[in-house]
Write a protein that binds this DNA or RNA. Structure first.
Lengths: 185, 185
DNA sequence: GTCTATAAACCGATAGAC
DNA sequence: GTCTATCGGTTTATAGAC
């Protein structure tokens, strides 16, 4: 008889890989390292993820789900478009201050693999494009123009790339931009 | 006497390495690729650069010199601090629109090697710190406060990380920030 | 003989196959 | 879980110019 497959093995492997990929970079981490941390055999890893690219794609997809979960949670108490924008940026700002923060997983991947068009790159670009679309939609609902959306996205980009100290500066600025009446409050 | 050493060999190697490192990333490029493009043997490469880390450090130092040369050129016709800030950001904005632009070489390295403290990482962090200090000084001379400096640096970070289309948005915004009298012009 | 330049050899790590 | 063929950075031999 076959041995009972341990449930959640895929998640165990993916969690281990995600932690390593985010912390050290996808290129820097070998499959051997992943199996070591996951505590399983190589065999099992390649059963669940046929290639490193697919594992990286799964890692970014997991990261996307986490980001979307956090965003949805942040939006629970936000009603107006302005409050929603502030809530989203506030969530990002908080995440940059958490220990172990190493920048945006999607931007990092695209920096590690410039010009890549493989599955992980598509996941990364897809997330960034969709995030940008959300900003555009909220700014539009707010009554803002394309310039305001561009500026907010510029700050979001800077927020992801710069040091965590910039988080508050970025959040305050966004708040000022989407709630002009609160200027100098 | 020994065989006539080809002059400029070091520069040839460094130029080849710099092009490859910037285009594909330091991690993605092997020493074999460098010697292939440089058209020399491995031995000669290791004679000039004892390790890949030293070659990477030389690459970033070269990039720094190029950035500083471009910055000095941009500053030639700028007299006031405001004009100088605009000139510097304008130069960055132009560089992001040049074909082959793949982001900031220094930020890219730090993304590729998170937490690194080796020589190239020191060169990268040193350049970014010095650049930030220049912004702080100019904003101070301008009569601006720490918040303005933080905001300008936030835009500069976003400008380096985002797509080239953001270049004009960033430049216009900086112009508006340092020359308040021109608002709505 | 000393130096340059090339090529081959090293050894650990790599992705992946069985 | 072991094996392999490949590739990583690095080093050592070899061929050739002065």
């Amino acid at each position: 008889m076959a041995r009972t497959p341990v449930p959640g093995t895929r998640d165990t492997i993916l969690t281990a890989a995600a932690g390593l990929f985010y912390r050290y970079g996808v290129r820097a981490v070998g499959m051997a390292q992943v199996v070591e941390v996951a505590g399983c055999g190589k065999n099992l890893l390649y059963r669940h993820f046929p290639s490193k690219a697919e594992l990286a794609a799964a890692y970014l997809t997991l990261a996307r789900r986490e980001r979307e979960r956090a965003a949805a949670e942040a939006l629970r108490w936000a009603n107006t478009p302005a409050e929603q924008l502030i809530a989203l940026v506030s969530e990002i700002a908080e995440s940059t201050r958490r220990p172990g923060y190493r920048g945006c997983a999607f931007r990092n991947y695209l920096t590690e693999f410039p010009g890549a068009t493989d599955e992980p790159a598509q996941v990364a670009r897809g997330y960034l494009a969709d995030s940008r679309a959300v900003v555009d939609r909220l700014v539009s609902e707010l009554g803002g123009d394309a310039l305001l959306a561009d500026r907010i996205w510029l700050i979001v980009d800077g927020l992801h790339s710069g040091p965590p100290e910039q988080a508050r500066v970025a959040l305050d600025w966004i708040t000022e931009l989407v709630r002009p009446s609160d200027q100098g409050q």
